[in-house]
Structure formats: C-alpha cells, structure tokens
C-alpha cells in the first residue's frame, strides 16, 4: 500500500509539473505581450513597456521566468522591482496589482465546500437510491426511482437552482438562500447556506449514480461468489451489503474518480446560479479582465485539487479491491 501511494504521488508531481509548464508557456510566451496588457490600452510609450518588462521579469529567458515562478510558489520571492511576494507566490494581478494568493485563499473555501458537500450529497442519495432499487428490483419502488432518475438526469443546475430557491427559500422558508461559508466564525450558518446549493448540485449527479449503482448491484448479485456466499448459509442482507456492495463500490469509486473534474465544473456553475463567490466567479472575472496571473493561478490550483482528489480516490479503490493493491 505504501509503495502504491508513493508511486501515485510521484506520478501526480510529474503531472502537476507538466500542467504548470504548459499553462505557463501558453500564457506568458505565446499569444500577446503581458506587459502591453498590464500597461493598459493605448500604451505606446516604449520605455514604459520595457520598464514593465523588467518589473515582471519578462526580460529574462523563458526557462528562468518559469523557474522563478515555480520557486515563488514554494518559497516566495522578491519581484525584480523589489516588491516582496510571500510563499505561495503566484505573482501580482494585472488588474489591481494585488498579490494573487490571498484572492484565491479567500475564495476556495466556497468552491471546496460545494464540491465536497455536493459529492457527499449525490453519493449518499444516488448510491442509496440505487441500492434500494436493486433490492426492490422490478417492484414499484424500483420503477418510480428509475423514472425520477431519468428526470433528474435531464435537468440543469441553472434551471432547478432558481426553482429550488423560489420554493424552499422564498416560499416555504425551510432553507437558507445560498451564501458563502465562513467556517471559522459561523459554522452553523455556513452549513445552512450550503444545504440548498449542495442539494441542487447533487441532482444532476445522483440520478446517474443511482442508475449505475442499481445495475452494478444487480450484476453483482448474479456473480458466482454471491451464490457461494449464500450456499454457505449467509443471510441475503449480509450477502447484499458485504459481498455485492463491496464489488459495486469499486466500480462506483472508479466512476467518481472520472467525474471529479465535472464535480468542480458543477461547483462553478452552482456558484454562479446561487450568487456565491468561489473560484469559478474569480476565474470568470479574470478571463474578462485578461488578468493572466490570476487565471494561471486558478488553473494550477484547480488542477492540483483534482490531482490530489484523484490520489485519494485511487487509494480508496486500492483499499476496496485487494487485486489492485498488489498490482
């Protein structure tokens, strides 16, 4: 298990290195002159542009710039103009000259909470429904559940989001309107504000998971080793949970690993729907204001999150299936 994890972590480091390198070169080397962007429109003063070049370190060779950038993330650095940028340093925003990292660290709790809360919601609801359907296979519950799943699969967050706000927050008053979490100062209020966004976000996912879980469980129940377990005299519930679910869980986790990227994507759409201020909101603003360092930082941050969660998912997979562990 230790070797497995080590290998995965080393692999992840390589992937992150590649992601940062490609993004960096795309943003800073290819299309336009960042100095021109930073200088603003109608900036034709050659001296001013070259001064900005120097300030941003753009007069250095590209590999040196990249090296400085990566070093800055880990150790912080002094910019060529003498400005200090503490670790983790992603540079300064073109738009307002603020250091990037505080902007991100301000926003990521919202996105992160949404992604984790939404995942928990759709895994619990989706897998639970799927298991019940498989247990009740062919009966009324199963049919109703698969119809609901189909319905849930065909709606969008920005469609049911406002409907859910209108119904549960405005009319019934059961749940809070979504708002940004402030975990340290108001944990209960934060939880309240996240319930509705997380549930809405989970809808588009759990329908898929309930159908997958149902068919995986039905498939598992027809396996030879299930029959063996029953032939040993193990009860049908025991066999269902201990044997069939264990087999299905491995596949569910695989699907979840593939969906991780969409989970973060879904979190970003949910933020927009509920007017939350997360990374998605930040990234969209960065794109509109051509704030390259900010875009770059959001991208590296999200990529790292996905890579790290992937390792967690792989570790969970290895825990569930011993054949993976030793491979």
């Amino acid at each position: 298990m230790f070797r497995f994890l080590t290998r995965r972590v080393l692999g992840a480091i390589v992937i992150l290195f590649l992601i940062t390198a490609v993004t960096y070169f795309l943003f800073f080397v290819l299309p336009s002159d960042p100095a021109q962007l930073a200088c603003g429109k109608n900036c034709s003063n050659k001296d001013l542009v070259s001064a900005i070049h120097h300030r941003m370190g753009l007069d250095q060779p590209v590999y040196q710039q990249y090296f400085d950038y990566i070093r800055g993330i880990f150790f912080g650095r002094n910019m060529p103009d003498g400005q200090n940028c503490a670790a983790p340093c992603f540079g300064f925003s073109f738009a307002n000259d603020q250091p990037i990292w505080p902007l991100i660290s301000d926003r990521y709790p919202t996105t992160f909470s949404l992604a984790v809360g939404g995942s928990a919601a759709f895994l619990v609801i989706g897998v639970g429904l799927g298991m019940l359907s498989a247990w009740q296979q062919g009966k009324t519950f199963d049919r109703v559940a698969s119809s609901i799943s189909l319905l849930g699969n065909s709606v969008q967050i920005y469609f049911i989001g406002p409907l859910a706000i209108a119904l549960f927050a405005d009319n019934l008053g059961w749940l809070d309107h979504g708002h940004d979490p402030t975990w340290t100062s108001d944990p209960i209020g934060s939880l309240n504000g996240l319930v509705l966004p997380c549930l809405v976000m989970s809808v588009i996912f759990w329908s898929n998971y309930s159908r997958q879980t149902r068919s995986l469980m039905v498939e598992q129940m027809a396996e030879d080793h299930i029959r063996t377990a029953r032939a040993k005299g193990m009860g049908s519930k025991y066999v269902f949970y201990r044997y069939a679910l264990r087999g299905a869980a491995a596949s569910i986790i695989t699907i979840f690993g593939i969906d991780l990227g969409s989970v973060f994507g879904g979190a970003i759409i949910t933020e927009a729907t509920f007017g939350l201020h997360g990374l998605g909101n930040l990234a969209v603003n960065a794109v509109f204001s051509l704030d390259l360092p900010l875009e770059m930082a959001v991208m590296i941050f999200s990529a790292s999150a996905i890579v790290i969660f992937n390792i967690v998912v792989d570790a969970a997979y290895a825990l569930i299936d011993p054949r993976i562990r030793l491979a």
Binding site: E223, H225, T228, Y243, R246, A250, P322
Partner: peptide, 15 residues
C-alpha cells in the same frame, strides 16, 4: 455444503 466449479469466480476477490 457445496463445492463449486470455478474457484476463481466462486470465491469473492474482496475478502
């Protein structure tokens, strides 16, 4: 009790 034919599929891979 029963002894099944294909012991690779008849035993659970997870335990």
């Amino acid at each position: 009790a029963m002894v099944f034919q294909d012991s690779l599929t008849a035993l659970s891979p997870y335990y």
